[in-house]
Structures are given as structure tokens and as C-alpha cells.
Computed example of a mutant assay.
Amino acid sequence: MSPHPSTSFAALHRADGAPLLLPNAWDHASATALAAQGFAAVGTTSLGVAAAAGLPDGHAATRNASLTLARLLGGGPFLLSVDAENGFSDDPEEVAEAARELAAAGAAGINLEDGRPDGTLAPAELHAAKITAVKEAVPDLFVNARTDTHWLRDGEGDGNGDGGGDGGGRARETIRRLDAYRQAGADGVFVPGLSDPPCITALLKTLDVPLNILYTLAGPTVPALADLGVSRISLGSLLYRRALGAALETAALIRAGEPVEGATPTYDDVQALR
């Protein structure tokens, strides 16, 4: 009997001592092309999915678009993790239902974030309740619990002053939240915006589940993050934004009468992405 997809997905974290490098796609073609490059697992980017559909990211507007994409990609030759924003609801049972539908579509994992569109954090207890509801509804689904403590605009934690704008307060709030999410059943934790190697090392000492770090062009390299002991490295919306940037640059070069360089898939190459 083949292992459950989420079991295989969990095993990819630090497989052979290396972190899972997870590229994030926004449609069928991008996901299939990435899988063809040898990536055993592909995630989705909520920004890319939202922008491609003309929707705002992080406002629980991409539930249907994310489910539709999961149905296109689930059960394919790669494992799929879906960026489910905040679960598309503040009702834990509604979040659990969305998770059921994504798992039924073939998703092996999901991301659940505690950040809100206004730059504050949802109460840790609420986010933990969502995680518990999802794990009770779909025990085999890999839940990557994300905290946006390092992405806050106001530096004030959940709005009650317990996050703190100082580095120590932010670190304590991150640990507090991740511990609550782990106890609620999270299989892994994600801290986008955390890139300082000593801070990553200190956080790893407090964890007994895989740590996911968001790769940034200005941050540590993949080998450096691997040496620190990070279990998963996500590319987030980077590939989508780079693709959009390349499209704009190409159009501008053509308009200016300049040569266009770089790899360009042929029409037949794209037709073959099925």
C-alpha cells in the first residue's frame, strides 16, 4: 500500500538531512513546469492565485479559486501544499470544512496564517482553535502553522501590546504563538520575515516540529539555511512576482526595439504542460 500523500509530504522535511525546498505556483502550468524540474512537492502562493483572479490577497476571497486550483493539481505526480491564508474564515468549523475540501481535492498540506489584512495578528487562541479543528477533521493533512510576528506593520503583537516592537518582545511572542500552535496539533511552523541566522538558531532550540523559513533574495542562501537546521524553505510569491517582472521587462524591451534574452519556453513546451 502506498503511503498517504501527507505522510510522504512530512517525510520530505529534512529528508537525507536536507530541507524541503518548496516552490510556490499560481496556476496549472507553473505547478506542472516546476514538477518537471524535479521538485517532489509544490506549494501555491495566495498572492499569485489572488492576483491571477483579480482578487485581494489575505482577505479570504480566494477560497473558491484555491479549491479550483487544488482540484486541478491534486493527485498529480507531485505533492501539493495549499496556501489557505487564514483558513478563509474566523470560524474554526468553516476552516475545517475548507481543509476537508482541499484534502479531498488531493492536497497533502496547507498553510494557515495568523496575520490579518490590517497588519495585526489574530488572537493566538483563535488560530490554535482553527488548527485543532482542522486536525480533528482531517488528521492526515499536514498543517503548517504560520505566524506573522515578523511581518507586523505596527509591531504590537495581537493588538494588545504583548508582541512588542523590540526584538526580545517579538521573539517571545513568536515562541508563545508557535508553542500554542504546536500544542493545538500543527505539524510544522512557519515564520516569514525571520531571516537573521542567530535568531533562527535560537528559535530552532525551542521547537520539536519542522521550521519553515521564507527565502528572500536579501536573506540567507538555501545552503546557509540548511546548515542552520531549517526543515523547509518556501519561495512564497517570489516566482510569481519574478514572472510578472519578466513579462513587463520583455514588453518594455520589445517596445524600445531592444533584443530580448533569456530562456523562453516554446509554444509546444507550454502545450505539453498537462
Score class of each variant (00 low, 15 high):
212 N>L: 12
184 A>H: 00
202 A>H: 02
197 P>A: 02
154 D>Q: 11
239 L>T: 05
211 L>D: 04
165 G>W: 08
239 L>I: 07
194 L>R: 00
230 V>L: 02
241 R>Q: 15
152 L>D: 03
250 T>L: 15
146 R>M: 10
150 H>F: 13
225 L>H: 00
173 E>Y: 08
189 V>P: 09
217 L>R: 14
214 L>Y: 03
183 Q>F: 13
163 G>Q: 09
191 V>C: 01
215 Y>S: 06
137 A>T: 05
207 L>E: 15
155 G>V: 06
179 D>T: 15
136 E>G: 01
234 S>K: 01
173 E>Q: 12
137 A>M: 08
237 S>Y: 00
225 L>S: 01
207 L>F: 03
240 Y>V: 10
196 D>G: 01
155 G>T: 08
227 D>L: 08
135 K>F: 12
189 V>D: 03
234 S>N: 14
176 R>I: 11
183 Q>E: 15
221 T>L: 06
240 Y>E: 07
139 P>F: 10
186 A>W: 03
194 L>M: 04
219 G>W: 05
229 G>K: 05
165 G>F: 05
228 L>R: 00
204 L>K: 05
224 A>W: 13
225 L>R: 01
183 Q>V: 11
190 F>M: 02
238 L>P: 01
250 T>D: 11
168 G>I: 15
221 T>S: 14
245 G>H: 06
161 G>E: 07
250 T>N: 10
170 R>H: 02
145 A>D: 02
194 L>N: 04
239 L>G: 02
224 A>D: 15
184 A>G: 03
222 V>W: 01
145 A>L: 03
151 W>Y: 13
193 G>P: 00
208 D>F: 06
230 V>A: 01
198 P>T: 12
149 T>M: 03
155 G>L: 08
197 P>F: 01
211 L>S: 07
212 N>S: 10
143 V>H: 05
161 G>T: 10
215 Y>V: 07
200 I>H: 00
137 A>F: 07
167 G>D: 14
225 L>T: 04
188 G>N: 06
138 V>C: 04
147 T>C: 06
242 R>K: 15
168 G>W: 08
226 A>R: 02
185 G>N: 01
201 T>S: 06
226 A>S: 12
151 W>L: 15
217 L>D: 15
203 L>R: 02
167 G>F: 05
133 A>T: 02
140 D>H: 09
147 T>E: 08
252 A>C: 12
186 A>I: 06
192 P>W: 02
249 E>C: 12
187 D>E: 06
142 F>Y: 13
152 L>H: 06
246 A>Q: 09
213 I>D: 01
158 D>M: 09
164 G>A: 09
137 A>W: 10
238 L>W: 05
224 A>K: 08
216 T>D: 13
196 D>Y: 04
171 A>P: 01
173 E>H: 13
186 A>T: 13
191 V>S: 00
229 G>N: 07
140 D>T: 06
210 P>K: 00
185 G>D: 10
150 H>M: 15
235 L>K: 01
